[in-house]
Nucleic acid binder design. Sequence first.
DNA 1: CTCCATCAATCATCTAGAGGAGTGAATGGA
DNA 2: TCCATTCACTCCTCTAGATGATTGATGGAG
Lengths: 242, 242
Amino acid sequence: MSIVDDRLPRYQRLRDLIAADIAAQRWAPGQTIPSEAELASIHGVAVGTVRHAIDVLVGEGLVTRVHGRGTFVRRPAFDQSLLRCLRIPELEPGAKPVLISRILERASLKASPEVAERLELPVGTDCIRLVRQKLVERRVLRGEEIWLPKARFAPLLTVELASIGHDLYPAFERLCGQLVATAEESLTAEAIGAEHATLAGVATGQPVVVIDRLTRGYDRQPLEWRRVRAPASAFHFRREIR
Amino acid sequence: MSIVDDRLPRYQRLRDLIAADIAAQRWAPGQTIPSEAELASIHGVAVGTVRHAIDVLVGEGLVTRVHGRGTFVRRPAFDQSLLRCLRIPELEPGAKPVLISRILERASLKASPEVAERLELPVGTDCIRLVRQKLVERRVLRGEEIWLPKARFAPLLTVELASIGHDLYPAFERLCGQLVATAEESLTAEAIGAEHATLAGVATGQPVVVIDRLTRGYDRQPLEWRRVRAPASAFHFRREIR
DNA sequence: CTCCATCAATCATCTAGAGGAGTGAATGGA
DNA sequence: TCCATTCACTCCTCTAGATGATTGATGGAG
């Protein structure tokens, strides 16, 4: 797949080798990779060079170091998702709100040109479409339309809806063996059309934020395309510029 | 101001020292700091430790390294601003659109509770309020309301409006000697009220994005609080999650 | 059983170098 | 004048260690 370029510095080549091993799931997410001393002796370089390579991987978010324990393959940080910028209404002070999800539709469909482009598939490829709401205490937090390539996610069509659960990514892993590695998100806002208003839980014409998410596996292929609509009033995003 | 903590590792202390010198404008933005070898001999540490300290500063965006030339004090990257996510309508293909700004109001006012909180000033402190539009070929791109502490920005009240120019931050520097170091931005969306619709160039009730920006100087004090409204249809933001 | 000291494994910090590679200015010949 | 070479300066890569800090497991004392 990815050939290591001899002209690169050693720490870069080492980074590529380790990254390839992670991609090949040689070490599962949450588990440690070999210790720095081990990697140094395996690859015949100094520990400093191994540290440099791992520094790069840490910067890229592929691994995390824990002092005294080891270096761990990291799961992607979905707590940084734009979806986390949707304020959850606090019903009772102190009570932890419970997020429920309700799947309203599940169907096998052919990829439209738009879906095909997003999922990087030929038009007409078999796909799965899920329509889902996220709820907090019976109130709609957001509405979601999800597209998945059927080839990878066929089990989702046949299992009981209840067994999918409220979080999709664990289900991807449990039922279909698909691990999420990265995601790209984009954000726009619009006045919601009648066709989406009910799903998002707002009145037609109200302002909503539209969050698109494309998740990719460790092989960099698209796994899921999702379009989310939520009331604009609930959305608040912050960032720092330096 | 900031006391260097002896318990911290050397590279961290060194980072703090260098950062303090940058904050004190000992080296101007765009200029080099002393070479790694020099810093090592000045502070009596190994070059590796200096490199580590500078690695941290690079990660924080305070400096940039250029191979063979030196390490430079960096200006903040405002090309990452959310304001850059506003699509500029392309009127003629190939033609580079010209951004014009028009100051509609300029006044000296007392800080309201909200303004005071944002600028971290006592309520009632003298401030300057600017109301401004950004235009592309006579079309409104966004509307802005800007608050500045009068103590730092008094010259802006008396100069000719034309001499402020289209970009605010160069004017801050040129006319008031104020350098922008960092900014915090936040984003929400709403249906625009009648009081802001004209400024933002949209009809009342249309969806707009609201971008708040607080800029700070190298002394970490707030310099400017700005609230921007722009048509939601023009806004598009992307990010990657790893 | 609980608490605490010990210990091995692991990452973190730091040193002191050698040699490589990119940059820009000075130099000198065509 | 123009261009290639040289050279000093800078950051970059890499080595081979020593020592410190953190963690989790183990085993003994109370």
